[in-house]
Design a protein around this nucleic acid. Structure first.
Length: 268
DNA sequence: TCTCAAGGAATCTATTCCAG
DNA sequence: CTGGAATAGATTCCTTGAGA
């Protein structure tokens, strides 16, 4: 375990960064997406993107892109599986059109970090289908799952963490599907379910962010694990949780009490 | 001044983790 | 179920200090 000082610094940095994002929330987006299962693809191609949801942090308005929505527009709802490639391509066309007009926004995401699952995967998929992806600069991406480790350490002991975190915080799970269930929904062509699950997740991500900012997110890490049992840790603990002013006030009250007591002793 | 022990630091390896 | 990255655990290495 790295030393306490370093951990406190990481926590502070991550919180500061997140606060900064939320302060400029007119420029802030939350993104999540669903795709086919990562394994179990027979012909070696990368998993299809099935739906993407993007939520404006300040207004809560959510834009979404999904295969079945595109199919509906093009009148192909009953023959989706015959047109996967072109439908997926049209959906990504719409998505990247959106990206190019929001290239300077900040994007909060959950573990979308590599070619397996993440921005890289979406870009790759679009290239495969013949598109040219607009790249979001890495500086504009904020991986909430990773930053939460900086802030809380091992914030949930049980797995899957995302789902357990939701349970622990009593955030509503209507329409929510676990990862395996989402992949299964795609197999069964339950695109609407899939889409709603993605929408719900983006919703949940916003709640989580807000709770972190308000310092009332419930996690499995104890105060001691977060701050460590060191003078600086205790100082941060008091400062963040009960307010520095209250601490100083109480300290003053105790000291004046002691002084008063000594004076009465001397006078009697 | 040399040797050896102890402990902190650095490096190497094993395990966990995460999205659908 | 994947795959790589990050973390935790294990091991080695190096420095420092004390004693002969």
């Amino acid at each position: 375990m790295a030393n306490a000082k370093y951990r406190i610094k990481k926590r502070k940095d991550a919180l500061k960064e997140l606060n900064g994002l939320v302060e400029r929330d007119s420029n802030l987006l939350i993104i999540h997406y669903s795709c086919e299962s990562f394994y179990n693809i027979k012909d070696g191609r990368t998993p299809r993107i099935t739906s993407i949801a993007v939520r404006y942090f300040n207004t809560g308005q959510t834009i979404s892109f999904s295969i079945h929505k595109v199919a509906e527009k093009q009148g192909k709802l009953d023959s989706i599986e015959d047109h996967y490639n072109e439908l997926e391509k049209s959906m990504l066309d719409e998505f990247f059109q959106f990206v190019s007009t929001h290239i300077n926004y900040k994007w909060i995401h959950w573990n979308m970090r590599d070619i397996n699952y993440g921005f890289e995967a979406i870009n790759h998929r679009y290239s495969v289908l013949g598109g040219t992806p607009s790249m979001i600069h890495d500086n504009n991406k904020y991986d909430l799952a990773r930053k939460m480790v900086d802030i809380y350490g091992n914030y949930i002991k049980e797995h899957p963490r995302f789902e357990k975190l939701i349970d622990k915080n009593n955030i509503t799970k209507r329409d929510f599907l676990g990862g395996a269930a989402e992949a299964e929904a795609f197999e069964n062509k339950e695109f609407v379910k899939l889409h709603q699950s993605t929408l719900r997740k983006v919703d949940i991500l916003q709640s989580v962010v807000e709770r972190i900012i308000e310092n009332n997110l419930k996690t499995d890490t104890t105060l001691r694990e977060i701050y460590g049992f060191t003078p600086q840790g205790l100082y941060e603990l008091v400062k963040e949780n009960w307010g520095y002013n209250l601490f100083i006030f109480l300290l003053g009250a105790i000291l004046s009490g002691i002084v008063g007591y000594i004076i009465t002793l001397l006078l009697t």
